[in-house]
Simulated assay, not measured.
Amino acid sequence: MIRVLLADDEPLMRVGIRTILSSDPGITVVAEASDGREAAELAGRHRPDVALLDIQMPGTDGFTAITLIRRASPATTVAMLTTFSRDEYVSRALDDGASGFLLKAAAPRELITGVRAVAEGGAFLSPKVTRRVITGFRNRRENRAHPAHERISALSPRERQVLALLGAGLSNAEIARELHLVEDTVKTHVSAVYARIGVKNRVQAAIIAHDTGLSADR
């Protein structure tokens, strides 16, 4: 069962999202919050698999909540749910460590798919923003001092395999099956890869894998 924390300052929006998520028998909303600080407190208490956060909330916004939730419940994956798809919103959310970015105007099935994807250790971006995000990260990275090839030079052979599979879009469970490892070991490798190449989520890691030509030989 995927346990979800939902944070949105509009009660009717929370009702609608909860109704959509509850239509999937494998998802349950375990807590609801109206601002980011409350969401972090509830995350520490309930330890949800996924925190689904609105960006614009009074008091503590969704961006600040990402950091607070990661401190309160490190195993909780964060996805942003918003009306807006502005480039700076998407980039900031991913930079801060969110693994998903969904639009409130998306179809119900897309919302469920996104929650399932991030809960399984993957990443999910609304199709309407995916191309803009990838282009934005590539443009920004071209201006950085260390090229992508230098950033992966410190990776071990196993970590390179993991990065290549991240680039192919595999979840942690799929990587575990591919490499004949237990999922907890894969999570450890993924965390090590993030730290060594200086990224915070699977989207950024996948772009580096693509830019360096790492291929998952499957």
Rank of each mutant, 00 (worst) to 15 (best):
R3H: 14
L6D: 12
A7Y: 01
E10F: 12
L12I: 15
M13I: 15
V15E: 15
I17S: 09
I17D: 10
L21F: 13
L21M: 11
P25W: 06
A31T: 12
D35E: 15
R37T: 09
A39H: 08
A40D: 08
R45E: 15
H46P: 05
R47Y: 09
D54C: 04
I55Y: 11
Q56R: 15
M57V: 14
T60Y: 01
D61Q: 06
R71I: 02
T76F: 08
A79G: 12
S85W: 01
R92W: 03
D95K: 10
A98E: 02
G100D: 08
A106T: 08
A106I: 08
A106Q: 14
L111D: 05
L111R: 04
I112F: 04
I112K: 01
G122F: 04
A123P: 00
A123I: 08
A123E: 09
S126D: 14
K128C: 04
K128F: 07
R131H: 13
T135P: 00
F137I: 10
R140C: 06
R141T: 01
N143L: 13
A145R: 09
H146R: 09
P147A: 11
A148M: 01
S153N: 07
A154Y: 00
L155Y: 02
P157K: 03
L163V: 09
L166W: 01
G167V: 07
S171V: 01
N172E: 08
A173H: 03
E174M: 11
I175N: 11
A176V: 06
E178W: 04
H180D: 15
V182C: 11
K187Y: 00
V193D: 10
V193S: 04
A195Q: 15
G198V: 05
V199I: 05
Q204H: 07
Q204D: 12
I207R: 06
A209R: 02
H210W: 13
H210A: 14
D211I: 00
D211T: 11
L214G: 03
A216C: 06
